[in-house]
Design a protein around this nucleic acid. Structure first.
Lengths: 180, 180
DNA sequence: AACTTATAATCAGGCAGCTAATGATTAGGA
DNA sequence: TCCTAATCATTAGCTGCCTGATTATAAGTT
């Protein structure tokens, strides 16, 4: 599941040595890249452990959050296709996610009166309660992960991470975006 | 496969609104966290597309790299257990990875003369050639991803990402470390 | 009405990682 | 020597995600 399958990152000297053999290797770029994957993996591991304790996967959690009724907003009723689009997964995957969530009583499928091909997916009261019970710890964990960075460092991090993500999307656009 | 299943990150105002309902939610921490997962996912997507073009998974690539003979180093012959340890996967998973790599002629298993329970896994010439042919593009992609950051920004990023990873490992240690 | 095209949701099958259980071998202790 | 415990690799079966094919419905064309 993790993106980086390495217990320990290679030392910088090792990157330098490797760069002699492969002139394309930019040691400081590789170092940043490895740190990025590791930090992402570690952060994900922390929240995923909490997910597993509540018997929910990242995918199912995302679906619940997309359906979650915010403070005074409308009920957020979406079709499987809309959910798949916003979650960035294929419709087939979304079918499976909704299957599990429906079996667990978190969401319900209701046929659409206008178009019989379509369904509406709604969060049940049980799903609402579930989220409200687990979200505090979820947010607490994220807060702990970042509590050693001050506001200035956080702004810097957001800016630099944004640069990398934008560069990735621009230089290597996605070939087949999910379900175009 | 990605860690973050969201096409678009929530707006900051949305985090602020949510924070009114959940006092544990630290908006700037959440923003950094979302950016971290997204940047990690995007970076991984870029190198994984290259892996797929060469019919290799992240796991198999890691095994090949662990066995890769550096400039003048020794041949890097390892047992499946050592590979699993260094790659951070279970031994069962490593068995499967080696199965595939051996079927493709990238590595060989040889019985250990000293201890008949053990094997040695070795990179074949074909595996060596394979790595040498794909690594330049691999490193090139990492260079492109980071080419909009100067050296100062890279050092900052390494430092801040390191802080997060260390905080994660320290505040939320892994419960069952692979195969202890 | 009949035909074609597009779209919604689903089904079938695959792959990568995991845990738990198994068989073979080694090491240590009485 | 024999018994027990530990270790190595493997197998079997699970989950979560994926792609590609399938079925039902809708909409446009003639």
């Amino acid at each position: 599941m993790p993106h980086l399958l390495l217990k320990d990152l290679p030392r910088y000297e090792c990157l330098l040595e490797c760069a002699q053999r492969f002139p394309q290797l930019d040691p400081s770029a590789c170092e940043v890249f490895l740190h990025l994957l590791r930090a992402g993996d570690e952060g994900f591991r922390v929240i995923d452990a909490h997910f597993q304790a509540h018997n929910v996967s990242q995918g199912r959690f995302t679906v619940l959050m997309l359906l979650f009724e915010k403070n005074g907003g409308e009920p957020h009723v979406l079709t499987p296709a809309q959910l798949a689009e916003q979650a960035g997964v294929s419709r087939a995957t979304m079918t499976g996610l909704i299957d599990t969530l429906e079996r667990d009583g978190m969401v319900t499928r209701t046929p659409s009166p206008a178009d019989r091909r379509m369904l509406s997916v709604t969060l049940t009261p049980r799903g609402q309660t579930f989220l409200e019970s687990m979200l505090p710890e979820h947010f607490r964990r994220i807060g702990v992960l970042l509590d050693s960075l001050n506001e200035s460092e956080r702004r810097t991090l957001v800016r630099l991470l944004g640069k990398i993500a934008n560069r990735a999307a621009e230089a290597f656009p996605t070939a087949a975006p999910g379900q175009a």
